[in-house]
Design a protein around this nucleic acid. Structure first.
Lengths: 324, 324
DNA sequence: CTGAAAGCGCTTACAG
DNA sequence: CTGAAAGCGCTTACAG
């Protein structure tokens, strides 16, 4: 038989569709007898309410769009897992938008999400020129990204993380620490902290930025060039994969780690902690970031006009390995 | 103003809703003049059709459920990215179901997906006792997992992969190669290949299985125990994270790699290739697995009753690093 | 070439 | 305590 509908249940239970709907939604008064009969009919038919029809009526679809650069990156994979988990607990489903690191797709996705009436969007990409977020009259939450004045930002304490990493490298004897990061713009608090710390120690900053959309191979080549040309005796990479590239370079070129070159990464995703527990890294509270973003978007969906409170950055932690 | 609806566009263009719908769907005859007027109205109003309403009418929602153990694992993250990408090209959206490695959630998700009228489901978990897949009259595609006779399986060539890895270790001089895998059941072609190859060389098999749901820390402890107790001079791990745990153990215990112990992993996700290019591993064609799964589910949605053709396993490739 | 009307599967005032 | 009817925003035969 085709999927049973409300009417089928009603017929079988000998009541009206209204009554069935009431039982389903547990609203209004119902005699126990009717309730029991309806529930029996539901069970017998294996009836399941059609979420689509429900969405069409209520204002909400129960869907939250999650836009990420790509879940192939363990940091974002773990973040999305946490978001999905927290949203599922609250009855929301995740429509995944994986931009494949491509800024154009982000704008398309935003459109698509609105067409599909998502109740809200969590975005965590770093494209700086995506239009459409202002126009979108959607509840929005950003993860570690500035969208606009009305969009709350969930993030780790980047300033503290940058400081921890840099101070640690200096404490371990580094005198020529190199910062490798995605972009070196003013909003990059990890870079700023690095600069502040080295300046306080009278050390000249060495900063290299590869840009978000640099393909992995190119990035690796760049990093290897930089490591060689700067004569760095330490590397602070603002993500773990980059740190691991530096580690690999050291291995290939016969440098001893940490004696010749100390290495600190950033993020501390479960995958990296599992696979490379030896990597010293600044561990972000990824699960908490995801959970908090989920909470916030649910709040904003409930009350879209509430002025966004400033989110205190979540604490990060230096995790020591043998690479430093 | 509230989100404009079809009626608003019709009023503005001075036509009926039927006509607007025709323009939108490009069906039936339309004078160029009307078409232009309608398009202008759409643009002026910033109208976007409501996907929910469309879904309610057509039989399809344009949604595909993707069930994974967790996207926090780089292999599944990359797989999901590939699936999402391929589905997006075909006009489908992904409803992400991250089971957090928890079998119970899989059954709940299956329910939820049906309630939300997804057009099909791609599943890639390895829970063996999940009920509901038979009852679900949904188009279904499995990735590297046996669900039932009518469900096509997309997978890499596990037998070839197991053979490549094991033969390679023996060729490098291993005489006591240890296989570390999730479960050692008859359907595990990687394990079977390992056994066949060592048997052909007159070597006694050493196999250890940790079970899918073993938490990371426990898994690490197990692996370290096994490595020590078996006196292995080589490890074939059927996933890269496990291989990296072995590598870490070697580092901690002062073993030289590959001289004292050779290590080969499995999967070769981009994250691992990026972060640990030195790891010898069997590289799965993750992007192709995802793309193929997407193709298949779209086909099955179009023709749910077509008998599933046997999918030839996709080729894998041994990637040499310095760990072997 | 264009429109009025029915209907997708539900929920929700409004009656009774 | 229960039901008939309208309506969510679209599409699609069916007329004209």
């Amino acid at each position: 038989m085709a999927r049973p509908k409300l009417q089928d249940v009603a017929t079988r239970a000998g009541v009206s569709v209204t009554t069935v709907s009431r039982v389903l939604n547990n609203r209004g008064y119902l005699s126990d007898e009717v309730r029991a009969r309806v529930n029996a009919a539901i069970a017998e038919l294996g009836y399941r309410p059609d979420g689509i029809a429900r969405s069409l009526i209520g204002r909400k679809s129960g869907l939250v769009g999650v836009i990420v650069p790509t879940v192939a990156d363990p940091f974002f994979g773990e973040l999305v897992a946490a978001i999905e988990n927290a949203l599922a607990e609250r009855g929301y489903k995740v429509l995944l938008c994986d931009c494949q690191e491509n800024p154009e797709r982000e704008a398309e996705y935003l459109d698509l999400l609105q067409a599909n009436r998502v109740d809200g969007v969590i975005t965590s990409t770093h494209n700086r020129e995506v239009r459409g977020y202002d126009a979108a009259e959607l509840p929005l939450v950003a993860v570690d990204r500035r969208i606009g004045p009305r969009v709350p930002i969930v993030r780790g304490d980047n300033a503290a993380g940058g400081r921890l990493a840099t101070e640690h490298l200096l404490a371990r004897g580094a005198r020529r620490p190199l910062l490798v990061t995605a972009t070196d713009h003013p909003g990059n608090d990890r870079a700023r902290a690095y600069r502040d710390v080295v300046a306080a120690h009278g050390i000249e900053p060495r900063v290299r930025a590869y840009g978000y959309s640099t393909p992995a191979d190119e990035r690796r080549a760049l990093i290897e060039t930089w490591l060689a040309e700067t004569g760095a005796d330490a590397v602070f990479a603002t993500d773990d994969l980059t740190a691991l590239m530096a580690l690999e370079w050291a291995h290939k070129t016969g440098r001893r780690v940490p004696d010749d070159v100390r290495i600190v990464g950033y993020d501390g995703s479960a995958a990296v902690r599992l696979g490379m527990p030896g990597l010293t890294t600044v561990r972000q509270p990824i699960a908490r970031l995801g959970a908090r973003a989920a909470e916030l978007i649910v709040d904003r969906i409930a009350d879209p006009d509430a002025p966004p409170a400033a989110e205190p950055p979540l604490p990060v932690e230096l995790r020591l390995g043998w690479t430093s």
